[in-house]
Design a protein around this nucleic acid. Structure first.
Lengths: 308, 308
DNA sequence: AAAATAGTGTCTGTCAGACATTATTTC
DNA sequence: GAAATAATGTCTGACAGACACTATTTT
């Protein structure tokens, strides 16, 4: 049923939503009198499908004819970012401590509003630049999904397009400072899912769901893409990116097999010589590599079924 | 940088967006004077990150304090559906012929508005029921992604959450009728991508992009899930679901290997006896199966690299 | 019997899993 | 030399690709 028709039906029958409709949102009573909706049976090959036609027509026209009148915003559109990095062998996500209600003092994903003339992806990249202070044009950023439950924000209807970003370990250590506002939290210290609330950090809104989905996205991405290299600074050793797999999957691939796979995949990594590393505490120095141009792995590196 | 801050900065510097800001959307000049924004340096372990704090605070408060005043709708939020089926060995997607501008007489994906109190997924499932006339609660429906380019609809800002649905061949053939309004189009007859516009059907808005993404989603889903069974009615033969792979991938998996894979995956299909089929035109009758409870394939059935 | 479709057997090459062994460095 | 880390060698089993062959039905 198309939305305009649904609206009429809702309006003509008593329901818990009626008060909300009457209190004035998109369509006034007058507008609804203008609504005409028809259903047609359509046929494709041998198949009959009842459809609602002109689904775009009525809402759009009403919007366009009423732009000079009073309307409340229907939705707020935001982007939320799950910015991942690997720190000290752990997969971490950047969280911000909220300073006000709701969820005051809860940790939340960074995010912000999509500007009226801004593409959603541009908004996400803008936020990424703001949160990391780095040039986000080179970073991996992808859309995760849209979270639009009407109750996800108690104040108003907020629909959020969640994104996943991967950043290499930031390389400018600075001693001291205020740690309370934002932090890369290891994901295993967060209260995600059902039974593990004890001792773990709860998140604001539905951000536990988003983070859970984002982690699974990252885990599966490592299977069939070369994105592990996005977590490390260049140049890197094979042990570095194997460490990424260990941090993200919780289990490291076999050393020899991993090396075989990475080096036999054209364009996964580019040799960059060998060099003594300052912090070497003993051990043969590793060969170093740069990121290659390949993006996908054929066939993938699969997590073992047991671990899944 | 948080959106509110960006808004202030945009406002204070001459830019091509300035006129638009001034013409009044969410935040009036007065509102902007209320905006206070600070930047802090935060430290995580050894890592210093400049961040913008209180990103939610200002926009939300302004919205909440101004709900009695005049605002224009910022965004329209819709769902679009790419409803796929397999007809006569071809992957098809349901399209609606538009009756009005813009894109009058162009074919477009079915879709509609998300209602003010409705979850995005509920909206998609509602549309799916409307478009197919079937009980959508059993069908496979998943979110594809959100398309929010400001120019995707020439009339106003419309952000659309695209979904992918898979339906079995509808089983009530009806002769004759009006074919002009909606139709399952074979995807190879649509103008998708760059150079193949000639002789193919162009789509409205950015629906060519959405359909392209949706097709790729379906193709990859067949690799690692049991969703091929969602395209066929029960009971089905192994040849039936192999035909789905052929239609979606353009190339059929080897018969013997495919059988081996499907039958060795617990819960992919459930034996349902063997029966003579009415339309049998010669040939040994196939064993029949029902959908199993498994959803994922470990390891996946990979498309050959060449075909990718 | 011929045609058509369903289903089986089996060989081979590739590759992941596993793990033992060698190489090169710091202390 | 001991410890630590990097890198290599190699055996094995699982399985995908390929394709020849058998089985059961309609006409």
């Amino acid at each position: 049923m198309l939305s305009a028709l649904a609206l009429v039906l809702n309006y003509s029958e008593p329901s818990r939503h009626q008060a909300r409709w009457e209190s004035g949102t998109f369509f006034s009573q007058d507008s609804q009198n203008e609504i005409k909706s028809t259903r047609r049976s359509i046929v494709n090959s041998d198949i009959k499908v009842p459809i609602a036609i002109n689904r775009y027509k009525i809402p759009y026209e009403l919007i366009m004819t009423r732009t000079n009148q009073t309307h409340q915003p229907q939705f707020a559109l935001t982007v939320d970012l799950a910015i991942f990095t690997v720190n000290y062998g752990k997969l971490c996500v950047l969280l911000i401590c909220r300073g006000e209600d709701p969820f005051s003092n809860y940790w939340a994903l960074p995010g912000g509003f999509v500007l009226p003339e801004e593409d959603v992806e541009d908004a996400a990249r803008r936020e990424l630049t703001e949160e990391t202070g780095l040039d986000a044009s080179e970073m991996h950023l992808e859309q995760l999904g849209t979270y639009g439950n009407p109750k996800r924000d108690p104040r108003m209807r907020v629909v959020s397009v969640a994104h996943v970003a991967l950043v290499a370990n930031l390389d400018r250590p600075v001693a001291g400072g205020d740690v309370s506002q934002a932090k890369f939290w290891p994901v295993d210290s967060l209260a995600l899912g059902r039974g593990d609330k004890a001792e773990r950090i709860p998140l604001a809104f539905d951000h536990d769901t988003i983070v859970t989905d984002a982690i699974e996205r990252v885990r599966s991405k490592l299977e069939y893409t070369t994105l592990a290299t996005a977590f490390v600074n260049e140049p890197f050793s094979l042990a570095d990116i194997r460490g990424v797999y260990e941090a993200v999957w919780g289990k490291a691939p076999d050393v020899a097999n991993f090396r075989r796979k990475v080096l036999s995949t054209k364009g996964f990594v580019l040799p960059a010589g060998k060099a003594g590393v300052p912090g070497n505490r003993g051990g043969r120095p590793a060969a170093l590599y740069l990121r290659g141009s390949a993006t996908h792995l054929h066939p993938p590196i699969l997590r073992s079924e047991i671990n899944t």
